[in-house]
């Protein structure tokens, strides 16, 4: 539901940019930062305010990998699958994490909305492969067990949000 808080938040984001289509990606990024995903009602509101059809906004939101139309977890674990990480075995890390959190390719966020696990393209830290990025912090030369340990830390609340 479109709440007045949401209107206010989205208005603030739109007002930070020019009210034309070239700003739409930045605006969506702003909304995603705020809510950790793109709520449908927020996008419909953007569509009304900016006079861009909601199908177009939906098309843009589904094109770019960084946007999510589903709520994401409080902590986001990104496993790099660039060439270097792939060669140095990033896949077993993903498998182990998914097992640990009972997730799968189609189900990337835990039910309690604590953790989202996703495979991402090259993070540019190839020399330290394989790398894992948790809430923006890169962890180098990871293994399945080191990553599992990291998850346990998150679960125990030892990894603060702004880490």
């Amino acid at each position: 539901m479109l709440t007045s808080e949401m209107i206010e938040t989205v208005d603030t984001i739109i007002n930070e940019h020019d009210n034309n289509q070239s700003s739409i990606i930045s605006i969506l990024q702003g909304i995603q930062r705020e809510y950790r995903y793109l709520p449908e009602e927020a996008l419909n509101y953007v569509s009304d305010r900016m006079d861009i059809s909601s199908s177009k906004i939906y098309g843009i939101a589904t094109f770019y990998e960084n946007f999510s139309l589903e709520p994401k977890g409080k902590h986001i674990i990104k496993i790099c699958d660039g060439t270097a990480c792939h060669i140095r075995k990033s896949q077993p890390i993903l498998d182990a994490l998914r097992k640990e959190l009972s997730l799968s390719e189609d189900r990337i966020t835990t039910d309690d909305l604590l953790i989202t696990v996703e495979m991402v393209s090259c993070l540019g830290a190839c020399s330290l492969a394989p790398v894992v990025n948790v809430d923006g912090v890169v962890y180098a030369k990871m293994t399945p067990s080191k990553t599992q340990a990291l998850v346990r830390k998150i679960k125990e609340g030892q990894l603060s949000e702004d880490n």
Binding site: N20, S22, S23, I25, S26, L28, I60, Y64, E65, N66
Partner: peptide, 26 residues
């Protein structure tokens, strides 16, 4: 500065321009 939103194809010139214009990066 325009920040990409996760699409390799935007490295291609016309897709990059489409993306700056606020379109799908096709």
């Amino acid at each position: 500065i325009n920040q990409g939103a996760g699409a390799f194809v935007c490295g291609e010139g016309s897709a990059l321009i489409a993306s700056i214009e606020g379109e799908r990066g096709m």
